[in-house]
Design a protein around this nucleic acid. Structure first.
Length: 725
RNA sequence: GGGGACGUGGCGGAAUGGUAGACGCAGCGGCCUUAAAAGCCGCAGCCGCAAGGCGUGUGGGUUCGAGUCCCACCGUCCCUACCA
């Protein structure tokens, strides 16, 4: 209601995707190949009065704000920028040669307004085209030819393949308009199926030479094609567009006052000429539409509005908020239970006291997810948002989610956060200052010969003559092994976690997901992989279990085996810590595996006191380092060591710098970039001395035989490269 | 059509411009066992008996040195779309 008062909420009739089986509006994302994602019914276009949030008010701000999100993936920022789709151009009205009688009813008595980003090509215009649902087209549909054509256009599907292959269709209305720069030049007005009502003005001017769609259309209907931009390396006299429109940069020609200008210069010149003639104005247009939030569903936040015949839509008074959904609803028939509930919707008008009805549409779930993080700052506050708490916690420093939310949740939340900031309820404009988009868990898919998806749990696998075979456990029916896809209920390639937890444990499952791939990438779920993680869990436990109880002996670094283990321990801390901070969990896990192998090389059985001491230290560090990866195991290990409290509360280990660094390094010696020898030298050894050592090395001199050394590059503690020929 | 990402062993993947293939999976060999499983120890990019050679999609370039940087191409995946 606060957004409503701010003018950010409005109601209008809109064309929506209507699922006739589930009897609800679907978002564009929920329409797959023209069918409802759940019902599979062919989705209809329907006009419904819907509530909208004015996200377009924030279009510029949302684009500008992207520049501040330097801890967001470039990809997501690009997607949002493209989605908002700001373009700079010109709105231009073309006067009718002779206005039709329907012009007034269509609201175009002053002419047809078009939007273009290419005013520089105005002299290449050859026709005007309006969308089939443009008001003028609708007014003209008393003509059966027009009515039939509009019907034909609507029949066209919305699926990708249909749009891809769709033929350009047009109908000449017989009307004509006058060119803004030449009163003697008349252009025909067409209705065309490729013009969209909900972008720009729903009308375009066609410039076939410099737009592929216009060219296809012009070729089909025999309309003129007049080039007005020529690439700098082409001759205007012979330049021909052929079958491909020229959309690149170049010089303007055939264009009177713009001749010789660059495309950019001509755009500016055309805009100022049109503006001086008072026929149009430079304009910014966005691809972004306002956000339709009405849903004909029960499970949603009620829209706090009461509809009164006399007063229109009236906000629910504050003291009656929140509107609570009724619980005695039935889902036995499709459609919105709120609409058929016998009493819930019937209320008195807060304004006039007369009979009125509640709004039965509910809000899109994305409305709730657009501000929950502000509520989470203090979920017990009596007000929706505790501003002091929100100020303390927001913006969210590290947000994690799938990339599928790039232009849905992540855009909506940025919009609502800005609106709440303007309302004074929040102080930040950006809800999430850091974003990490994690990958999905995927699994192989299996299909029966009839094309039915089959769950992995019902399948036995075997290898027959080198080929992997999948069969249904109960019937033995052979299955087709399909692609590895995102786990989804519809494809039945979901592996229920409970079974895995029972067999391998929660820690093994968690460890596998983290160790398999970097987290931004998809993970293919495999039983073998989880087994590997399970082995690690058991091996770690075995080491703790084998450790002698009681206080550890004192360190003795003169024992080479003990020192070896202590060094490995202290060398482990840095990389594991780093891997966590950099979200490179798979590398961190690899380090832990590596360390476990070292630890196993210093077994508890028969260990010297020095090794026992080193092991005690190693286990102490290991328990803490594995805690983020395998928390349950870590606690059990911690307890086994006889430590107080929980390892989750224990301090993160710090490496002893002296033990973590070596005083000797092994340097590869390259000759002309190929490794020929290795040299062990003191860390930080002088370059000249290292060079001398390298040149004196026996295996180096073998490879240098007959060559003259031209140059020796010594990168301290890294590498030696000898250039010789 | 537009935008983005990515190409490294049989597989998942490591690698601040500095020894490519860490670690794991699958595989192979051995130990243990009456036997198997588990476990433990070892081998393992490709060609070659070896010496050695070749290797990060392809072709160029920069560099003492390129998986990494630059250019072109090929391929795969994702997003988006008759957006004027």
């Amino acid at each position: 209601l606060k957004l409503l008062k701010r003018g950010l909420v409005y109601r209008r009739e809109a064309t929506v995707n209507w699922d006739p089986v589930d009897m609800t509006v679907l978002a564009n994302e929920q329409v797959i190949d023209g069918r409802g994602w759940r019902s599979g019914a062919v989705v209809e276009k329907r006009k419904l009065t819907q509530w909208f949030l004015r996200i377009t008010d924030y279009a510029d701000d949302l684009i500008e704000g992207l520049k501040t999100l330097d801890r967001w993936p470039e990809k997501v920022r690009t997607m949002q920028e493209n989605w908002i789709g700001r373009s700079q151009g010109l709105r231009l009205t073309w006067q009718f040669d002779a206005a039709p009688p329907q012009a007034k009813a269509a609201g175009v008595e002053n002419g047809l307004e078009v939007y273009t980003t290419r005013p520089d090509t105005l002299y290449g215009a050859s026709f005007l085209a309006i969308a089939p649902d443009h008001p003028l087209a609708e007014q003209l549909s008393s003509d059966p030819r027009v009515a039939d054509f509009i019907k034909l256009c609507r029949a066209g599907g919305t699926s990708e393949a249909e749009i891809e292959g769709a033929e350009k269709l047009g109908l000449d209305t017989g009307l004509s308009v006058v060119h803004p720069f030449d009163p003697t030049w008349k252009l025909p007005v067409w209705i065309a199926n490729f013009v969209l009502m909900d972008y720009g003005t729903g009308a375009i001017f066609g410039c076939p030479a410099h737009d592929q769609r216009d060219l296809d259309f012009a070729r089909k209907y025999g309309l003129p094609v007049k080039p007005v931009v020529v690439p700098s390396d082409a001759d205007p006299a012979t330049f021909d567009v052929g079958a491909e429109a020229y959309v690149g940069p170049g010089k303007i020609f055939n264009s009177d006052f713009m001749d010789g200008m660059t495309v950019e210069q001509a755009k500016a010149a055309a805009v100022s000429r049109v503006e001086s003639q008072d026929q149009g104005k430079g304009a910014t247009v966005y691809r972004l539409r306002d956000w339709g939030v009405s849903r004909q569903r029960y499970w949603g936040c009620p829209i706090p509005i009461i509809h009164c015949e006399a007063c229109g839509p009236v906000p629910v008074p504050d003291d009656q908020l929140p509107v609570v959904l009724p619980e005695d609803v039935s889902f036995d028939v499709p459609g919105n239970p709120l609409l058929r509930h016998p009493t819930w919707k019937n209320v008195k008008c807060p304004s006039c006291g007369g009979d009125a009805q509640r709004e039965t549409d509910t809000l899109d779930t994305f409305v709730d997810s657009s501000w929950y993080f502000a509520r989470f700052a203090n979920p017990h506050a009596s007000e929706p948002i505790d501003k002091a708490a929100a100020d303390k916690w927001l913006g969210v420093e590290q947000y994690i989610g799938g990339v599928e939310h790039a232009v849905l949740h992540l855009l909506y939340a940025r919009f609502i956060t800005r609106a709440l900031k303007d309302e004074g309820m929040l102080s930040v404009a950006e809800p999430f200052t850091g974003l990490f988009t994690q990958g999905m868990v995927t699994h192989e898919t299996y299909k029966s010969v009839e094309g039915e998806w089959v769950e992995p749990d019902c399948i036995d696998f075997a290898t027959e003559s080198g080929v992997r075979i999948a069969r249904v456990k109960t019937t033995g029916e052979q299955l087709v092994i399909g692609d590895i896809e995102k786990m989804s209920k519809s494809k039945k390639n979901v592996v229920a976690p409970e079974g895995i937890f029972e067999t391998y444990g929660v820690d093994a499952a968690r460890l596998f997901v983290m160790s398999d791939s970097p987290p931004e990438r998809d993970v293919e779920w495999t039983n073998a992989g989880v087994e590997g993680a399970g082995r690690f869990v058991h091996r770690v436990w075995a080491e703790f279990d084998a450790q002698a109880e009681g206080p550890a002996p004192a360190f003795d670094d003169s024992d080479p085996a003990a020192l070896d283990l202590r060094k490995a321990t202290h060398k482990l801390i840095g990389p594991v810590t780093d891997s966590i901070e950099r979200f490179r969990f798979n590398s961190g896990v690899a380090k832990l595996y590596e360390f476990l192998n070292v630890l196993k090389g210093h077994p508890a059985a028969g260990a010297t006191p020095a090794v026992q001491a080193a092991r005690a230290e190693a286990l102490d560090v290991l328990a803490r380092l594995i805690n983020p990866f395998t928390p349950h195991l870590a606690e059990a290990c911690w307890e086994r060591l006889g430590k107080d409290g929980m390892v989750v509360d224990a301090e993160w280990p710090k490496a002893d710098a002296a033990l973590a660094s070596d005083n000797e390094v092994t340097l590869p010696v390259q000759i002309n970039g190929k490794r020929r020898a290795e040299l062990v030298v003191a860390k930080g050894a002088d370059s000249k001395a290292v060079e001398a050592l390298a040149l004196a090395d026996a295996s180096v001199s073998v490879h240098l035989a007959g060559l003259t050394v031209r140059k020796v590059i010594v990168v301290q503690d890294r590498i030696i490269n000898i250039v010789a020929n």
